[in-house]
Design a protein around this nucleic acid. Sequence first.
DNA 1: AAGTGGTCTAGACCACACC
DNA 2: GTGTGGTCTAGACCACTTA
Lengths: 238, 238
Amino acid sequence: MVKYQEIANEIRQRIKMGLYPVDTLIPDQITLAKEFDVSRMTMKKALDILAMEGLIYRQRGAGTFVMKNALAHPLDAPAKEYEGLTKQLKGQQLTSQVIYFNIEFPSQEVMDQLMLKESQPVYKIIRLRSVNQEPYVIEHTYMPADIVTGLTEDVLLGSIYAYLKEELGFVFGGAYRKIHADKASEYDQKYLECGEHDPVLEVEQLVYLKDGRPFEYSRSRHRYDKRSYTVLEVSNNS
Amino acid sequence: MVKYQEIANEIRQRIKMGLYPVDTLIPDQITLAKEFDVSRMTMKKALDILAMEGLIYRQRGAGTFVMKNALAHPLDAPAKEYEGLTKQLKGQQLTSQVIYFNIEFPSQEVMDQLMLKESQPVYKIIRLRSVNQEPYVIEHTYMPADIVTGLTEDVLLGSIYAYLKEELGFVFGGAYRKIHADKASEYDQKYLECGEHDPVLEVEQLVYLKDGRPFEYSRSRHRYDKRSYTVLEVSNNS
DNA sequence: AAGTGGTCTAGACCACACC
DNA sequence: GTGTGGTCTAGACCACTTA
């Protein structure tokens, strides 16, 4: 762990503990740099992290303030969406049922999304995932078999992402997501146990490795009463 | 405009033009720093921007690559969600109909969201916004009257955000959003002209000024066939 | 071993807010 | 004018990949 991250963690704690109260100035960068015995550049880099998180804001000429709404934020780093449900719902009972698992040649849509040729087979997976015994989401997932190797039904019953990270050593780069509302298909109704006219929240997702190779294309269809998608957008015009 | 932003713009152009082709190495930081006649730190800061945008990725020991999917991204900076429809839908015909406009004391929910006391009145606004003559979204908006001053129906017919920025000099800090799917209410059906069992995509949004004061709480309900919400998530574990 | 990107420094100058 | 944060520098050292 590098210096600026450690300092950011320490300051985050101070805000959380109320040592730097909401809506007040915190010490200036030079003072803080002296306290932590680092250069001012490094100190600023630590504060940059907290500004990205929406905990502080800085005004040239005035100083650095704790955001009025700082304590409304989730102050522990939240799990990334693409890291999978297993991590997001830690603490709750998550079970997975494999509805479909096969390998096949990709359709035109899947070829386009995953940047594949027709000769490159993909795994097709449909999983129903339940939280505390109640149906939560149906995931329709495609993964290129030459990138994601050695997938088995056993892996699908647990966390695919843990497998990719720990067994295959994948480093994730990010994800592109599209969130829609849709009508429930008969398939949705059957597995999510929702009403005929219940809407469904669909998260369509392309997940990339660090080098930009897409390795997952999925559509996750959620019960509308069990899931919403949240975003924090922080502007960076200094 | 500062140096690192200008350099980032230049490199972005080179990627766009194919001068630095997809999935190849670009020159190393020292070479680029010499070319642009800046220090290596400044050069790195320029590349940081492009990495945040998902255009390049860097591997310690190896070099800096153009992402395989770089050209799939929208290469012109997209309008921020909270900057309003007027900016997002530039080029299309956007019309606004004011369904309701009044000032009132806040409900408990609005007080909580906007961090107000019961004595601080809020504007309540309902607008139907149509794109190319077709209903697109109903916005239910609350704004504190002591922050957003001098609102009139004339302003509502155009862009509230242009008014806030240009007339009141607001600097936006960011927004917290929650995206749901919901059933269409009778109200939705009437104004969005959607079917009884059509779902609706709701974007619930709290928008903040740079100092963290919330100045807008809104629920925007969209026709499910006209709108989806997109997100790019870039991981930053170097 | 050589080359790459990441971190960190000590100091300089600038833009801006406040008094 | 004083003090704040933002930018930029020239150089150092480290972690890592590749050969």
